Computed example of a mutant assay.
Amino acid sequence: MKRYIEQLIEDLEQVAKNPPSPVYINTPPHLDNQPETAELALVPFKPISEWTSIPQEAFPQITDLEGDQWGRVNEAIFKVFDSLRLTLVDAPQEIPPEILYEVLTTNWDHPVQYLPSSGMDLELCTGNPQTCPYGDYCDCGEEFDEYELPEKFAACINPIAQSIDASLICYLNPETLEMEQIPKLLMDDPREYQLITGFGLEDEEMKHEQWEECYVFEPLDSSESFKIMERFAESLDDEILQEELFYVLNHRKPFANFKAVIDNSEHRENWFYFKMNWLEDHVKSIIYSEIHKIPGDSDDDELPF
């Protein structure tokens, strides 16, 4: 991985030294004296990956890096931003380099304009703490109200949180509150699941497919799980354990080593409580977003704030 990271940094720096040619635009006569306005109005939006010819998939997962690698890749990315006249204007000052790396790389397909004359301010904060890529490091949630869900959902929150923590995809019928749990591996790779367990898709009822409406809750990906561990470490008053957790999180096999440290500490129960609270908030956010959809909009709608 070290050699790959070095090559990635070299590729980014090469892009920074050789920015794309300015987009040719046919300036209307009434904007002849306003080139920056014409540029802003006519230059198309394209993903950063398209402007740079470096695909988002080129960036390793946050957990694959260690030491100063996050910071070094970030520096190379900002060199690319400078060459594209992009200015990231809303990054929190105190955000750790590994979290900033995750924000930058997961938004690598974010559409931007290449404006050599005037430049472009890039804002990634969504204004909603549940979708903001900066997470707790952003102040966008300071005046954000907690979720207000119908009382009927109260009894569903914890069972769903436990299901996704157990690597199960949970389906919820919002009318009857019936739930169905299916192993994620079965949905992702039915053949492998059958080889391991002897059961296949044909052995599942798939009741949720018959429901008129269905809320879906999937297990967290590795970056989200990493974030929970990091937040827990930050919350500790035990400086010795905190330092040990930060160490394992920044080195190889962070998940296994984090578990080993926690299991041999006095904070094992605190960790489970912290993680479950986070998962329950995650479940609430999904239910909230489903309830507040505008009729006819797609599943990608943002929360209405």
Rank of each mutant, 00 (worst) to 15 (best):
D109A: 04
Y137W: 14
A76L: 05
L122V: 15
E143P: 00
D145I: 03
Y101E: 00
E142C: 03
A155P: 04
E102M: 09
C125P: 05
D139K: 12
S163V: 02
E123W: 13
L104E: 01
L88C: 09
P97F: 04
G67W: 01
E94H: 09
V80D: 00
S83T: 05
A154D: 14
T63I: 14
L124F: 13
D121M: 15
E146W: 04
S118I: 15
A58C: 09
L84E: 02
V73W: 01
E94S: 13
T131L: 06
C140P: 04
G135F: 13
N173Q: 10
D139N: 15
I157S: 06
E148K: 07
K152Q: 13
Q61A: 14
C125A: 15
K152Y: 10
P174A: 14
S118A: 15
L115A: 06
E143L: 06
T105L: 11
D109E: 14
E75M: 06
G127V: 11
D139I: 15
D64V: 03
D121L: 15
L149K: 01
L86Y: 02
L88R: 00
L65D: 02
A154W: 11
F59G: 01
D109Y: 08
I99D: 02
R85N: 12
E98C: 07
I77R: 00
I95R: 00
C140N: 09
E57R: 14
G127N: 10
E66W: 03
E123P: 11
D64T: 06
Y171A: 04
R72P: 01
D121I: 10
W108H: 02
M120R: 12
P92F: 13
S167P: 04
Q56R: 08
K152L: 13
K152F: 10
K79D: 05
E146K: 10
P150S: 10
L124D: 07
Q61C: 12
Y134N: 03
E151C: 08
E57Y: 04
E142V: 11
P60T: 01
F59I: 08
Y134Q: 03
L104C: 06
V103A: 05
D82Y: 05
P129T: 13
A161M: 11
I77W: 01
Q113E: 03
S117D: 11
V73I: 14
I169K: 09
P97V: 06
P97I: 02
P133I: 13
Q130D: 13
I169P: 00
A91T: 03
A154C: 06
Y114N: 12
L104S: 00
I95M: 07
L104H: 00
G141S: 08
Q61H: 14
T126Y: 08
T131E: 11
T126P: 02
L86N: 02
L122I: 15
T106N: 09
G135N: 12
T63P: 01
L65Q: 03
Y137H: 11
L172A: 07
E102L: 13
D90Y: 06
Y137F: 15
V73D: 00
R72F: 01
D136P: 04
T63S: 10
W108N: 00
G141L: 13
Q162L: 14
L86P: 07
L104W: 00
C170Q: 07
E94K: 13
Q69R: 02
I164R: 04
L168W: 08
E75H: 12
E142L: 14
D90Q: 10
E146F: 08
S167C: 12
M120C: 12
